[in-house]
Amino acid sequence: MLSAKERVRALYGGSTYYPFSCDHHHLLAQRHDRIVEKRLTMKNRIEEIEEAILFLLEKRRKERQACCQKSLLSRLQFIPFSGDGSVRNFIRVVFADNKPGCIAVFPEKLTEKERAEFHATVSIGRHLRQASIPVPEIWGIDERLGLVLFEDLGTTRLYDLYQRNPTDALPFYRKAVRALALMQVRARDGFDPEFCCQTAAYDRQVMRIGESGYFLESFWKQTLLQEPPAGLDLEFEKLADRVIEYDEPFFLHRDFQSRNVMINDDRVSIIDFQAGRIGPPAYDLASLLIDPYTGLPDTVQEELMERYLEAMDDLGVDGEKIILSYPYLAVQRNLQIIGAFSFLSGKRGKSFFKPYILPSLIMLRDRLAAPEFDGFPVLRETAARSILKFRTVLNG
């Protein structure tokens, strides 16, 4: 067992000079012990996860005789990678001879929240597959670890395609809006609220706490350090009223954007559906069209909306309420994006999201200039002030 001074020395790269009192030595030694314990715990968990992956793949091989030959399981590669805003862990499992295998998804620690998300992932994923929606097949699960194995759909997202060549990405956007319409209609039938890990439906609570409230707390208060403008809360209530006025119950993905649409063999597939619930269809459409990752031109947004409405019409859905609700749901989504990106870049230190905050603010200001928002003067002013104040933050 290392002494307190030796453990402090290890923490500080072997330096022999310690400008600390004896109490400081013991505090730093305790910190060293916590770091080592955490690393050992995570290492043990990864080893346990890898053993579970092997077991599930062997089980699938025996049951299906279709996953892979036994020889391909002899030299697996485990390649960790990170999700965007997720706190879950991801491992890409590659078979021998570099043949694509599966994606393992699991939490660092299986708390009640993570357990609920695990059940939602499995339940909604199976429900969508049964409804013939293009989502990855679940290859196996381990409830004890909160582990899910998905088929590997590759590494190309709609976002990646758009970054390389927007013109080449457009046909896949068209496929994506048709897949969205199909998912919203088909997955509504037989959807059990017990599947959900958050709320069973997109409701006032989601809008006020998870979207407008998210904007207010994470962006306005914590990023800009501002007090809420008088009257803003009332306008957020009014915005929720408008959404509820045009509410229609369909399946809602709630994060249907370009980084959650995979492209594989000229097909689109949908991932990251664990927050699914019942809700208004225009929300998912807005999530894709106003996605700040790609910044689609207005002309492209208009074309995709038309194609989406055509797809809904083919499925027997009247698009009138979708059209009427869209501006309000686009604002709700815009507020959620700003709140989420502020939280992720600020509290979680994920700098990837920060460059997208300003474009999202500009998008919000421009949308609120439309005539249907004449009754939202405080929100309009707040959006305009947000741009000026956030630019000051960026330059400061």
Rank of each mutant, 00 (worst) to 15 (best):
P100I: 09
T167Q: 12
Q301T: 09
E217V: 12
R144N: 13
R178L: 06
I133M: 01
S123P: 09
L289T: 14
W220M: 02
Y159K: 08
S74R: 14
E47W: 08
E237C: 05
N260Q: 06
A201C: 12
H127Y: 13
E6F: 00
L288W: 03
A340C: 04
N264R: 15
I35G: 09
T16E: 14
P377E: 02
W220T: 07
P359A: 03
F251W: 02
V393W: 09
A311I: 05
L288N: 01
E50W: 00
D272A: 08
G83M: 04
S123T: 10
H25D: 15
Y246T: 14
Q226A: 05
M363V: 00
I362N: 12
E137P: 00
F195S: 04
D265H: 15
Q222D: 11
A96R: 13
E58P: 00
L11P: 10
P359R: 03
V148A: 05
T382S: 00
Q130R: 07
A169G: 09
F191V: 01
Q184V: 03
A104H: 08
V122Q: 07
I133N: 06
F236H: 06
D272F: 11
R115E: 15
V93P: 11
G146K: 09
V261R: 02
L252Y: 11
D160C: 03
Y283H: 04
Y17G: 01
Q336C: 12
A330Q: 13
M305I: 00
R204I: 03
D33A: 15
L288F: 02
N395W: 04
P193F: 12
D314H: 07
S258C: 12
R259L: 06
L40G: 00
R92F: 08
R208L: 07
K350L: 07
R45M: 13
R333Q: 10
P280R: 03
R391W: 11
V94M: 09
Y159R: 07
L40D: 09
F341Y: 14
E108N: 10
L72S: 09
F172T: 10
F81E: 11
E114V: 10
Q274A: 02
G316S: 02
A286Y: 01
S342A: 04
G295V: 05
L158G: 09
I270L: 12
R242K: 08
Q65V: 00
L54P: 00
L394K: 01
L315E: 04
L145C: 05
V300H: 13
K43H: 15
K350T: 05
G83V: 06
P327S: 07
Q77Y: 00
R367V: 07
R64F: 05
K43T: 14
Q77E: 06
Q336R: 14
H119D: 08
L11Q: 10
D314Q: 13
L329K: 04
E237F: 00
L285W: 05
K389V: 03
E237K: 02
V177Y: 13
A230K: 11
L28C: 03
G83W: 09
I278L: 06
V148P: 10
D160G: 03
G213P: 15
A330G: 04
R88L: 13
Q163H: 15
L335F: 13
V122M: 06
I91S: 11
R385S: 11
P19V: 03
K175P: 12
G83T: 07
V87L: 13
M363T: 03
V243P: 00
D192W: 01
T294G: 07
A29H: 03
Y202Q: 04
D284R: 06
A201F: 11
Y308S: 06
